[in-house]
């Protein structure tokens, strides 16, 4: 039997909002480690990997590893029925074909439950090796989202270039071109406002902007975003969820013809 009680239920809501437009159907895996998902978008260009560690839950019971196939857009619809401060409990019976979502208001005066049918989803699981990246940029997530949105008004691709000068985001389109440079900035009042660049070697990679823009839907989950870049490798765009887990997006680069 599975019973997971998440006091900060809004986390699950935000996670679904972050991935529902990228992935249609996916398996949520539950094990002693936590509640996780790995899935690719339909064109296999992007991959999302998320984890809510078991410690993130007030009560975490998962008797055996279980994989639950769900339509993410329907799951997002169900989660939208929860209040912003609701406690969310997920329940499933062993061998059952449904997942129950229970929403409790903070003062316990309203309790709702929604049952969703599980689906059989044939999904491919990819092994992602631990890699030393040539450059790692940590910056405010809202700033990154703003840059991606601004550039998407100009072009379809984003070149991310890290040098010792800083990180440069560039695009080019029919109306012209744009470059936005962010320099390392650690002299800020709040650590979440810092931009930190760790660079082993300069690196430039080009990506489809619409995917990067879609990843920024995870912005409400974290004040900071981390971009990990290496030549000829997918970029990793990571939003850490406090001490509780993460959501990582992997995006394959575009290369010159």
């Amino acid at each position: 039997m599975l019973e997971l009680r998440l006091v900060q239920g809004s986390l699950l809501k935000k996670l679904l909002e972050a991935i529902k437009d990228l992935v249609t159907d996916a398996n949520f895996d539950c094990s002693a480690t936590g509640f996780s998902l790995q899935a690719m978008d339909s064109s296999h260009v992007a991959l999302v990997s998320l984890l809510l560690r078991s410690e993130a839950f007030e009560h975490y019971r998962c008797d055996r590893n279980i994989s639950m196939g769900l339509n993410l857009s329907n799951m997002a619809k169900v989660l939208r029925c929860s209040g912003p401060d609701d406690i969310i409990t997920l329940k499933a019976d062993d061998g059952g074909d449904s997942l129950t979502f229970m929403f409790e208001s903070p003062n316990q005066d309203k309790i709702a439950d929604f049952e969703m049918k599980l689906m059989d989803i044939d999904s491919e699981h990819l092994g992602i090796p631990d890699t030393e990246y040539q450059a790692i940029v940590r910056m405010p997530s809202a700033e990154f989202a703003r840059i991606c949105k601004d550039l998407s008004g100009i072009g379809d691709t984003i070149a991310i270039s890290v040098t010792k000068e800083g990180v440069k985001f560039s695009t080019r389109g029919d109306i012209g071109s744009a470059n936005i440079v962010c320099r390392q900035n650690t002299s800020v009042d709040k650590p979440e406002d810092a931009t930190i660049i760790e660079m082993e070697e300069p690196v430039t990679l080009t990506f489809a902007l619409r995917y990067i823009n879609s990843f920024t839907k995870a912005t409400p989950l974290s004040n900071q975003v981390t971009l990990s870049l290496s030549s000829d490798l997918p970029v990793v765009v990571e939003y850490k969820i406090a001490e509780m887990g993460y959501i990582r997006f992997y995006l394959a680069p575009k290369i010159d013809e």
């Binding site: 997918p234 394959a252 575009k254 010159d256």
Partner: peptide, 14 residues
Amino acid sequence: RGVQLSITEFYKST
């Protein structure tokens, strides 16, 4: 502009 690579070209199925 450019050729879009696929994520499966980088990571192996487990």
